[in-house]
Every structure is written in structure tokens, then in C-alpha cells.
Design a protein around this nucleic acid. Structure first.
Length: 578
DNA sequence: ATGACGTTGGAGCG
DNA sequence: CGCTCCAACGTCAT
């Protein structure tokens, strides 16, 4: 397929080479990549439309990843991104055209309406099923209509297919499965490509008359202008957006490329911070501003190119005094970008092996099969932040309110939902994060849920986060809890992480009735976490047996299968193989 | 075969 | 604070 793609691109180049006579009318289709800076596809569109016309387009599509599972905060973030994009384009004498509907229907209409000869867009290399199918259909339609489509890949430091996979011999089975081997591969990739400056006004066609379309195809003004997510009921316990949800939104950051570049500048103004950054040492309980950069929402929308960020970090790091200890990947800030590429590469490889299985347990090459429970009450309690564990509930409150929590907070709540306490499927946690996180990302969200649930990449299931202990070392007084769960504000330090242990008089003084103002803990962590470890052990054994069987049948392709084998272990205690 | 290692565990000890 | 141990992991290098 990659080969086919290359052939196609060559054919297109030849075609355009022969019909260069009349000026082109090009369209740049923004999907992700909501930015002007370091946007090679946009630059190509400007090149193709030189002396002709260029139409920057965004299509509001309720089924795309940006909107399919999406709460009001995320919807609002998208609206802000589009407004900023429009503003930047207008400053350059252009504008953003916004359509709504299924791109497969919308695009051909617009091609006709505007007389489009060329279209450019950012590719989606992860193999996300909806995007893959949509783009394939668009490609076919474009061929029929004679529109020359060119695809660019700049959402990762290096392209996934033509970059990393090509480097391992075009064999997705050979892509690195650990961060250290990914770093080794990254080391062989050479210099990270330069980021390209945003096009200036003179790069846009000077005599294009946009006034013909004044008042048409305007960007949405509020989340209410966006279509409701199609596949989910409007009113459920999960916070899907409605008019009330759109009032008083308090996202941790505001959307748009301009904001992204401002936040990046603020980061690079602190060279020592950049140079010495170590992710595990950052605090997940800071109550005034985050201890990390909070650039992730911009990365997920493509307001900021990873290459731009990479080079900005390098430059800032070099300005740090020599006395500052330099951190390194995987914990450094550069390391965070490596993780991002690694996760994208794994998503890509997974979908190449078994299409559409990234984000799922079944069929996912990298995912252990684990018999998760199915308890809607527990799931709901987790989502609403009513587990009775203040640290967990505070995190879920911040998520709901700001659309963001620190990475380590995500670890704690993800562990709690899955292998740690509630024994619910990571797929459900993944969906909730997709709905509520401003930085929701198909590849990263999936990868981290595999990791935290010990379904893939991380396997030390006996290392379990305690919903009580974990944060005490950073935030003894529980300020973070007091901020996000104000009903617990008056509890003394001694009981802020464990209100159920407080004597009746203490609870009374703090104005709390457990079960009314704040829930009793829904599980006994000490007990269930041990039980869950046994379940994990059992599931791992089963996995090993299946692997052994597969290896056997692969060896002598017609061997007899052993049936009904189950791990020989009933009571937690495991015997070492003799 | 064996041991070191893996972005961020907890409890108990000194 | 730093150290060790904890029933329990898999991967990679040697």
C-alpha cells in the first residue's frame, strides 16, 4: 500500500507537470494540524494556488475523532482553535472556510463550487479506522473528479510509515516494542526536520476575492454551533454537552495556535526548567498552575508542530547555565516528544497488523486479554469522582472541570479503575478520557491505558498505586483535595486522604456526613488490590499458555491442539516452574 | 541460562 | 531521606 501511495504521488507530479499552464485553484483541508506554522501541506497548497486561488477549509464532522466522543470543554477548545486559525488567515488576506457534514459528501460539492484543481491535507498515519476509510473514499472521489490530492505527514517528528517503519525494513513486525529500543531507532533517524515558518501574507494569492463568500461558511462561534455527537445519547451521566454545559467553561488552557506559541514561549523563557525537566519529579498536585508545560492539548489538535517544539526545546536547553544538570530521554522534555512518536508508531503498527484494533483489547497485538468485570455502578462512581477516595475523586473533578490532569494523576485514576481497584476494562476508561481530556489523542490515550492496566508495555502488576499513600509525600496537607473537593475542606490533615477513618466528632466538626456529603469508599483498596493481583497472575498464565500453543502450532503447522487447558493454580499462591 | 533493566510503588527499617 | 524487600512481570543483552 505504501508502494502504491508512492506510485500515486509520482503520477500526480507528472500530471501537474503537464498542466501547469493555467493557475491552480487549491484547497487546504485542515483536519488535525490546526496551525499555519510548520504546515508543509498548507505551504504546498499555497504553491499550487500561486497566481490562482487558495481555499483553506475545515469540515465540522461529528464522526471524526475530534468530535465523536467529546464534552463541552473539548468542543469549546476546537471552536477556539478554529477562531484563531481564521484570525491568522484573515491577517494574511485570506480566511477559513468552514463546512459541516460528512467530508465524503461535502468535499465534492466544494470542489465544484470553488473550481478546485488541487487539494492538500495532513495524513493520518495511525490507521484510525474512521480516518482511514474517509481518506480512502476521498482519494477515490478526487480521482474521479480530477482533483490532484497531496498528503503530507508532519504530525510526528519523523513520518511513521516512510520514516520509522521504512528504517526497520518496511516490516511493522519489527517496530520497537519498548521505549529503549525506540530510542535506539530514533538515534538512527538523523536530524529532526526543520520547522517551517508560517506563510506571510505575500504567500497568499493577492487578488483572490473572498468577498464573494462573505457571510458564508463562517467558523462556529460557540460549542452550540457544533453538531451533537451522533453515536451517544444526549443526556447520560457522562457529561456530554448541552447549553448548560457551555456556560462557565474553565479549561486549563485556551485553544488556538497563537495561544500554543505563547505557552511555548513561556516555557522556553525558563531554560533551566527545560534543560533539567524530569517528568516523574514534576508535581501532580500543584494547585496554582501546572508543574508541566501543558502543551499537550495543542499537540493533540496540531496547533503546535512537534518539530517546532523539539527545536524550541533544544534552543532553550542550550541557553541554560552549565551548572544546571541536564535531563535526558525518556524523562526529559525531548523525551516526552519521543514517547509521543513511539506511541503513534505503535498505534500505526497495531493497525497495520490487525486493522482497527488499536484502542481495543481483542485482536490488539500488544494487548493482554484480561477478563475485566462489568459493573456500571463502579464505572459511574469513578467517572463522577464518587469513589470515596479523595485523591482519586479530586483528580476526576479536575478532569471534569479543566479538561486536564497531570500525567501521574492519570496513572493513579487509571490504575484505580482497572488492575488496582475496580477491575473495570481500560477501554471504558479510555472512552471517558477521550470525552473529557483536552489533549485526547488516539495513539497516546490507547498506549497509556494499556500501560497502566498492565495490558501491554508495562507488566509489573504487583507495583500498584495506592489511592491514599501515593500523593501524601507531595501534598501532605491535601491542598489539591481541598481545592477540588471543597466539601472536605475542613477535614484535618490526618484524615484528608482517608475520611472514613475519622472519628465521628471530627467528621461532625468538619461538617461531613459520610454517605451524604461524601461517599464511603466503594472498595477496600488493601483487599481488592491483592485479589486483583491474583487475577492478573491468572490472566498472564493463560496468555503464556496461549503463546506457547501458538508457537507450537506455528512450528508443526498441523499439530493436534490441546483442549481445555487452564492454568494449574487455584489459590493465589503460584508455584515456580520446576 | 542469567542478570540487568524498565519514565514515576509501597512498607518498613534505620 | 535512602535502603531493602515484596509472592507475583517481560524484554533485552550476554
Amino acid at each position: 500500500m505504501r508502494i502504491g501511495g508512492v506510485v500515486l504521488a509520482v503520477a500526480h507530479t507528472l500530471a501537474t507537470g503537464t498542466m501547469k499552464s493555467s493557475p491552480g485553484v487549491s484547497m487546504h483541508w485542515f483536519r488535525k494540524g490546526l496551525r499555519l506554522r510548520d504546515n508543509p501541506a498548507l505551504l504546498q497548497s499555497l504553491e499550487l494556488g500561486k497566481g490562482g486561488e487558495v481555499f483553506p477549509l475545515y469540515i465540522i464532522d461529528a464522526d471524526c475523532y475530534q468530535l465523536l466522543h467529546c464534552n463541552a470543554l473539548r468542543a469549546n477548545f476546537l471552536v477556539e482553535c478554529l477562531a484563531d486559525l481564521n484570525k491568522s488567515l484573515r491577517e494574511r488576506g485570506s480566511r477559513l472556510y468552514v463546512a459541516s457534514g460528512d467530508p465524503v459528501e461535502v468535499l465534492p460539492e466544494l470542489w465544484t463550487k470553488f473550481g478546485i484543481t488541487h487539494m492538500t491535507h495532513e495524513g493520518d498515519e495511525t490507521g484510525e479506522p474512521y480516518a482511514k476509510e474517509r481518506d480512502a473514499k476521498v482519494r477515490t472521489l478526487a480521482k474521479e473528479k480530477g482533483v490532484d490530492v497531496r498528503v503530507f505527514n508532519s504530525e510526528t517528528l519523523f513520518p511513521l510509515g516512510s520514516g520509522y517503519v521504512s528504517k526497520v525494513g518496511n516490516d511493522v513486525q519489527k517496530v520497537p516494542g519498548t521505549m529503549s529500543s525506540f530510542q535506539a531507532l530514533f538515534g538512527k533517524m538523523g536530524q529532526v526536520p526543520d520547522d517551517k515558518p508560517a506563510p506571510e501574507a505575500d504567500a497568499f494569492p493577492s487578488d483572490q476575492d473572498h468577498s464573494k463568500y462573505d457571510g458564508e461558511m463562517l467558523p462556529p462561534k460557540s460549542p452550540m454551533d457544533l453538531p451533537w455527537p451522533r453515536n451517544v445519547p444526549k443526556k447520560e451521566a457522562t457529561p456530554l454537552w448541552g447549553p448548560e454545559d457551555c456556560k462557565n467553561l474553565t479549561p486549563i488552557v485556551r485553544g488556538g495556535e497563537s495561544e500554543a506559541l505563547t505557552v511555548l514561549r513561556q516555557t522556553t523563557k525558563r531554560p533551566a526548567f527545560v534543560a533539567s525537566f524530569e517528568k516523574p519529579k514534576t508535581s501532580c498536585t500543584s494547585t496554582s498552575g501546572a508543574s508541566t508545560t501543558v502543551l499537550s492539548p495543542y499537540m493533540s489538535m496540531g496547533c503546535l508542530s512537534p518539530r517546532t517544539m523539539w527545536h524550541a526545546l533544544t534552543e532553550a536547553s542550550e541557553r541554560a547555565p552549565a551548572s544546571v544538570p541536564k535531563s535526558k530521554p525518556p524523562v526529559s522534555l525531548h523525551g516526552q516528544l519521543l514517547w509521543r512518536d513511539f506511541n503513534n508508531l505503535i498505534a500505526h503498527a497495531t493497525n497495520q497488523r490487525n486493522p482497527g484494533t488499536w484502542g481495543l483489547m481483542e485482536g490488539n497485538h500488544y494487548c493482554r486479554q484480561i477478563p475485566w468485570g462489568d459493573d456500571d455502578e463502579k464505572l459511574l462512581a469513578w467517572k463522577k469522582g464518587e469513589t470515596g477516595y479523595p485523591w482519586i475523586d479530586a483528580c476526576m473533578a479536575q478532569l471534569r472541570t479543566e479538561g486536564w490532569i497531570h500525567h501521574l494523576g492519570r496513572h493513579a485514576v487509571a490504575c484505580f479503575l482497572t488492575r488496582g481497584d475496580l477491575w473495570q476494562s481500560w477501554e471504558k476508561g479510555q472512552l471517558h478520557f477521550e470525552e473529557e481530556l483536552l489533549d485526547a489523542d488516539y495513539a497516546l490515550n490507547g498506549f497509556n491505558w494499556l500501560w497502566l492496566s498492565c495490558s501491554g508495555f508495562f507488566y509489573q502488576y504487583f507495583r500498584c498505586y495506592s489511592p491514599v499513600v501515593f500523593q501524601k509525600k507531595n501534598d501532605k496537607n491535601g491542598d489539591y483535595i481541598r481545592k477540588w473537593l471543597p466539601q472536605l475542606k475542613k477535614l484535618p490533615e490526618k484524615y484528608i486522604y482517608e475520611p472514613w477513618k475519622a472519628p465521628a466528632s471530627v467528621l461532625k466538626d468538619a461538617g461531613i456526613t459520610l454517605g451524604k456529603d461524601y461517599p464511603e469508599p466503594i472498595v477496600d483498596h488493601a483487599k481488592v488490590s491483592k485479589q486483583n493481583m491474583e487475577k492478573m497472575s491468572f490472566a498472564y498464565d493463560l496468555h503464556k499458555e496461549k503463546q506457547a500453543e501458538l508457537a507450537k502450532t506455528a512450528k508443526k503447522s498441523s499439530g493436534t491442539k490441546r483442549k481445555g487447558d487452564t492454568p494449574k493454580k487455584s489459590s493465589g499462591k503460584k508455584k515456580k516452574a520446576t
